[in-house]
């Protein structure tokens, strides 16, 4: 994939012919200096920013679909079904309790009824060790707790892919470790693909694969369990 910003003389490539494979059950870490295109790559992979050239394939129930060949509503549905996001800030609604932050995704996204949304959200918070915090609003939660609620919001719909852009940048290392362990546990136990952007070297030990991005070019540094990618024929998304 390639992606540039600007026109003419101002044109600048954020991604130059980059190829990435993400696999179920793996936590992939993307590192690189500021401005190297990490967030851009995450956005292109996750269906938020169209690439200039190149494709993003996802294998969905045995079929391969081209994310950027879909119509906008199709891509929205694809994201609804398959992707979870954790962003730098916590981005929690100040007026809602921890439980409601999760419920809103299930109710508005999946159309679950109140009872089902509540039980799923409670279940998720319990797993994240936030049982006691479920009726607190963001102002009453610590930074680490807030980020765990944000993780819960990303995980509660059980996504296939989880994208996290600097999820620990606002946290101290102790809380950052907790977040990474949670994400890795989610990858391993739920066979999700986790893609984490960070420039913190200490994260390396939690990653199954580490990518380095420099001036828009990608290198694989370490890939202990490198499975062979499987490419199925591309079909339409329905």
């Amino acid at each position: 994939m390639s992606r540039s910003f600007g026109d003419g003389a101002l044109k600048r490539f954020a991604l130059r012919d980059v190829t990435v494979d993400l696999f179920p059950g793996q936590l992939a870490l993307l590192m690189g200096p500021s401005g190297s295109g990490k967030s851009t790559l995450l956005a292109v992979l996750s269906g938020l920013l169209p690439p200039d050239s190149g494709q993003v394939f996802a294998e969905d129930q045995g079929r391969t679909v081209d994310v950027w060949a879909m119509t906008d509503p199709e891509r929205e549905q694809f994201r609804l079904r398959h992707t979870g996001f954790i962003f730098q800030g916590y981005n929690l609604f100040p007026a809602l309790t921890a439980l409601q932050q999760l419920e809103i995704v299930l109710k508005w996204g999946a159309g679950l009824d109140n009872a089902e949304a509540r039980s799923r959200a409670e279940d998720m918070l319990k797993r994240l060790g936030l049982d006691q915090q479920k009726s607190k609003k963001p102002a009453q939660l610590s930074g680490g707790e807030k980020q765990r609620v944000a993780i819960g919001r990303a995980l509660v719909k059980d996504p296939t892919f989880i994208f996290a852009d600097e999820p620990t940048s606002a946290l101290d290392w102790e809380n950052g470790k907790v977040v990474l362990e949670l994400l890795r546990a989610a990858a391993h136990s739920r066979q999700a693909s986790i893609f984490v952007v960070s420039h913190d070297d200490r994260m390396k030990e939690y990653a199954d694969v580490i990518y380095h991005l420099n001036e828009g070019r990608l290198e694989v540094e370490h890939n202990p369990a490198a499975p062979a990618p499987i490419h199925l024929p591309v079909e339409g998304f329905s």
């Binding site: 696999f23 179920p24 996802a58 136990s189 739920r190």
Partner: peptide, 15 residues
């Protein structure tokens, strides 16, 4: 590695 398919994944509660 299995193709990524929703129905085959997810032992959510397992430690």
């Amino acid at each position: 590695m299995l193709p990524l398919s929703v129905s085959e994944r997810g032992l959510g509660g397992e430690v």
